[in-house]
């Protein structure tokens, strides 16, 4: 089986390479690019730990082939900080204690980012629904909701 040329802009930087068509986007991000903030938790599109923004939309990068992302833009957790300045969501997770073990956190931040881009003033119910594709085992979600509300108030 052959490889395929790809070119993906990740966190603003053009990345090119030759990949097997079956290479999952999450493995490209984590292993080829070394951006290990994007995590793998379930393999089956349920936990959302691998969530990244693909052309402005939150997707689960364990369920996208790298070749599908060619020509597109990807934003990962590493790209959320600008000039060392935390994104309000990052600050919100810290201020409101929206994380414990930290493993689901990047995915939670990315999906919340997409949510706030579409709806800058979500209700609690809308936040809960917006993060319902992401599992957290530590926090019971209460403070994650507060973290998103914190960011919504800042943005």
């Amino acid at each position: 089986m052959g490889t395929q040329s790809i070119s993906i802009k990740v966190n603003g930087v053009e990345q090119t390479g030759e990949v097997e068509p079956r290479l999952l986007l999450v493995h490209f991000i984590r292993e080829d690019l070394g951006l290990t903030g994007t995590h793998i938790g379930c393999d089956t599109t349920h936990c959302g730990a691998c969530t990244v923004i693909l052309d402005g939309q939150a997707v689960k990068s364990c369920t996208v082939f790298t070749v599908q992302a060619s020509g597109k833009e990807v934003l990962t957790i590493e790209g959320m900080t600008t000039n060392g300045e935390l994104h309000p969501l990052q600050a919100g997770f810290m201020e409101e204690h929206g994380l414990q073990c930290g493993f689901c956190t990047p995915g939670m931040i990315m999906v919340s980012h997409a949510l706030l881009q579409e709806n800058s003033n979500p209700t609690e119910e809308e936040i809960r629904f917006g993060i319902s594709g992401n599992l957290c085992r530590c926090t019971g979600y209460v403070n994650i909701v507060k973290a998103v509300q914190y960011a919504a108030n800042k943005i």
């Binding site: 689960k60 999906v111 629904f129 594709g133």
Partner: peptide, 9 residues
């Protein structure tokens, strides 16, 4: 259907 990320694709 499924969840927000899945619905995006």
């Amino acid at each position: 259907i499924a969840d927000p990320q899945v619905r995006n694709l």
